[in-house]
Design a protein around this nucleic acid. Sequence first.
RNA 1: GCGAGCGUGGCGAAACCGGUAGACGCAGCGGACUUAAAAUCCGUUCGCCGAAAGGCGGUGCGGGUUCAAGUCCCGCCGCUCGCACCA
Length: 950
Amino acid sequence: MSSRYNHREVEPKWRERWAAAKIDRALSPDEAKGKKKAYVLEMFPYPSGRIHVGHSRNYTMGDVIARFRRSNGYNVLHPMGWDAFGLPAENAAMERGIHPKGWTYDNIAAMREQLKLLGLAIDWSREIATCDVAYYKHQQAMFLAFWKKGLVYRKKQKVNWDPVDNTVLANEQVVDGKGWRSGAPVETRELEQWMFKVTAYAEDLLAALEKLDKWPDKVRLMQTNWIGKSQGAKIWWDIAEAPDFLPPPAGEVARRADGGEPSSPSVAYGDTSPASGGGKHEPNHARDPIEVYTTRPDTLFGASFLALAPDHPLTKAIAAHNPEVAKFVEQCAQLGTSEADIEKAPKFGVDLGVRVRHPFDPDWILPVWGANFVLSAYGTGAIFGSPAGDQRDLDFANKYKLPFKPVVLPPGADAATYAVTTEAFTDDGTIYNSGFLDGLSTRDAIKAAIAELVKLDKGEATTQWRLRDWGVSRQRYWGCPIPAIHCAKCGVVPVPEKDLPIALPDDVTFDKDKPGNPLDRHPTWKHTTCPQCSGAATRETDTLDTFVDSSWYFARFTDPNNKNAPFDKKLAGYWLPVDQYVGGVEHAVLHLLYARFFTRGMRDCGLLDGPADGEPFRSLFTQGMVVHETYWRIADHDVPIDEIDIDPSGIALWKKNGEQLASSEIVGRPRRYFAAKRWLLPEQTEVKNGVRVEIATGKPVATGAIEKMSKSKKNVVDLDAFVTDFGADVARWFVLSDSPPERDVEWTASGVRGSWSYVQRVWTLMEAHGRAAPKPGDVAPNAANEGDALALRQLAHRAIQSVTDDIEGFRFNVAVARGYEMINAISRLKGDGEGEVFARGEALRILAQLISPFMPHLAEECWETLGMEGFVATAPWPVADPALAARNTVTLPIQVNGKKRAEIEAPKGAAESDIRELALQHETVKPFLEGVTIRKVIVVPDRIVNIVAN
RNA sequence: GCGAGCGUGGCGAAACCGGUAGACGCAGCGGACUUAAAAUCCGUUCGCCGAAAGGCGGUGCGGGUUCAAGUCCCGCCGCUCGCACCA
């Protein structure tokens, strides 16, 4: 009498029982005496609306780990929260005339209910949302602490400015030089920005990457490149000649526009100004020596020119008087910044009319050029050109007929004949044509050149970083207000801690016609008094970048309801670092770097005792996405029907004047062709007679690329509907099957059917067996230790070993395969004797435990059906019986000259000489040994035999 | 351009230290049950030759190391990701 497994009743039942028993609650350190802790965390979601099955994969992976750890006796912290500030809420507000707060909290409520459907073992008592005042007031206090510590400063910085939306855009929000929402060309503006001094930890952030051995190499490499440490030298080139209009070498002239060290410390709060750059050659006045950065001071004798960035102060100073230079600067500004543009842009430049002296020879005069390929944002914005050793310098020198000579002799080349024409030699070699450096290796010459520069006071060794400080100002409403006050008399003043929180006002207006920051135009909120002089003052109306919110939330989870502090030092010390962090690789640099910075900052502000090394995430896993086919049809009105069509098999036909275009001709499709696509939800389509059609119209539908599930392409499967139809367990099982977790998995109807039928098979066997499963430790009857029963017992115990290793090693797809293997083996075992019943019951019990991290509801129902006590979720993880899991006989393949010819069964650990004889005497092997001489017999114990003969 | 990763049946994949290539799933084919269908169950499925036993070939391409290579080394080709005129 088998009944169908009814997930609609079973799943909610167990979720209620788990909640009632509070099994997901993380224990306090005192309660958990004797247990090890495990902090398992998935990157918390942005509450964008509703979740779909694609979102579920990330949480399911974390949940498998969390449940697995709990079964293994750990005190598990597995929390959930909401990255709730951000632009989409304001956009929704503008489009629909609602409040960002209401929109956000509604979304959170909806998504919380959806996530709960998945049966995740989450301690919901620790839920946080970054837009709660209870959360961000601690963030404001932390901002003040960082400020006090010198990790916060203000600086004029170039930003992407959207002139239509009146706001700063992040680089990611600039697409092809245009604002992603407004479509308006983005302008560059200089704005006073709040900065976090990430560069203070550059050395440590880089060095500590080596210790993060449980992070993917790929992510560590990306951070290494992002931090971009480079060792070299600064060199000061004295001006020999300059145009008369340049001011004399005195007075205040700004240094290069966007340099390493920030400018004036305009903020009063203890020691707020970052350590100044310090050299005696600062600042770089128009007639002061030109500072150049190089990694190759060994090639100094090959120098033939200096080149400055278009926005180097000296270039700009000359452009103000020299029309030719002004034209050059303008041309550079007009060049696109996209990758393709840079690739294509030819090198060009202009002689600035300035001449400098070579540091090693005052009589050696070199020209100074402006050049488009020199970046103002890197190094000092000025280089010396050594054409024989740098391809860009060589191209430039060839174009403008600047002289050059090779100074590095490639290994093996002849100094008498070696020459450079169009290809520079950039590798290490032997220095020649270089005075006192002659004969040295590249390495030694770099040291010798720097020593000489220091002696002459013409330069010094230096380290250059690609990493920049983090600009956190956003001209936005829906974010954490920055706790600062602007006073005409006192300058920028921190809000006293007792006045926190600075809460966002609710009464703001969102008006499409009045873009910009609603805080800025709020009638009362921004007006306040100065905490120092009590005079009239205004609040800072910028809010913090939402990446700040997510830079410390993992610490808040350790003590989420603390009213007086962001968290208790002891609790944070107990739980941190996060033992397993799971998230998308798209956060490889920004979020993961900022969090590492923040942990160090919190430590140095005394908020955090451990981890002493400042690393928030011990182990990181970057998971793949759920992808799905996309479906679309032609829009009804946008395009003349003869220009685009869909053939009955779902292939798009692009036509022009009735002629069909080959796919190669469809490059650079006009924009309106894209507008012609109307994406369809999978459930709006069906396959009829092998053709996918729109259900409503019966018209054929085109099948587009297989892409990450996203609202915009509509290739999503709604979670609620899926859970109703198939159950959460099927979704969880499916997203972990088939593909390795780090790779994408394609959601397919047939794959879902496979998972569904697996659930049914498990249930059918469980129910048929009933309440007769042996408990762990029950002694097996003799009959269970022979024949097929024994084979099943061995398989089950080996599965314990395998699944345990697979979960530990993030091979969930392999663990899933073991689940299939087990159910196949269990259903193959026939007979109802004492031995079979025992073996079957034991295997089913083990199966219920092994699948419980993956399909917790089904496992729980099975556990109860088998007559087991308590929750399978909290039952100890099964331990394999070594006697059963071990193999006492092994199958050895016998190869002759590397080709498999036979197999033999042999006892495990059998003597090599015995195996050798068995192999040589084997009936099917013998024919291959006739007429040849046996050269060698290789016996790898318990693995293989290979007979070498010829 | 630089850097990293990947390339295995019709498809998703497995093979952890070099040791029986293709576990497991999907799709396909054959069968059972059924009036029929769905569901379920059983068998089968890398290619070629063969009635079978068995043989030959096979992990992007070309070489190499080894008794033995999907796995290690060298050189190509292709795809994906990251960075990009970084001095």
